[in-house]
Simulated assay, not measured.
Amino acid sequence: MSDVQKMQEAQERAVIVLDEPQEVRYWTDEFGLPEAELRQLIARVGPCAKDVRAALGRPIHEGHQG
């Protein structure tokens, strides 16, 4: 995978979009939340993965884009 592809993938992961089943699965696994709870949290803080992590009290690791 090229550096450009890695950057694009990281940028895409920075915003939570729950329109596709595989995306729902990814984010519910990533945060360890049921789908309904994840959707409520996104409705409250917005779709930015960084904001969701902050609301959950989880640190954003260096080099982690989402």
Results as ranks from 00 to 15, higher is better:
R13P: 09
Q5N: 12
E35D: 08
L33D: 01
M1T: 12
G66I: 00
Q8T: 12
P59E: 15
Q40F: 02
S2E: 07
A14F: 03
Q8F: 14
W27H: 05
V4R: 12
L56S: 03
D3W: 03
H61P: 03
E20S: 09
G66C: 01
I42A: 06
Q5W: 11
D19T: 11
I60G: 06
V24K: 10
A36H: 12
E35Y: 08
P47I: 11
L18V: 03
L18W: 10
R53L: 15
D3P: 12
T28L: 04
R13A: 05
D29L: 09
P59G: 15
V24T: 06
E35V: 04
Q5T: 13
K6V: 15
I42W: 04
Y26C: 00
V15W: 13
G66V: 00
H61G: 03
A49E: 05
W27L: 02
P21F: 01
A36I: 11
P21C: 00
E62K: 12
A10C: 11
C48A: 14
E23G: 06
Q11E: 14
G66M: 04
Y26Q: 02
H64Q: 15
E35G: 00
C48V: 14
E23H: 14
A49K: 05
W27D: 02
D29F: 06
E12N: 10
T28C: 03
I60H: 05
I42D: 05
Q40I: 06
D3K: 13
Y26N: 02
P34A: 06
R58K: 14
E30T: 05
H64M: 10
G32I: 00
F31M: 08
V4G: 00
R44V: 05
A49N: 08
L56E: 01
Q65I: 09
D29K: 11
V17A: 13
I60M: 11
L56G: 10
A36L: 15
M1G: 14
E20R: 12
A49L: 01
E35L: 06
Q5D: 15
R53P: 08
V17G: 12
E20T: 07
G46N: 01
R58V: 09
V4S: 11
A10W: 07
P47V: 07
S2I: 04
L41N: 03
V15L: 08
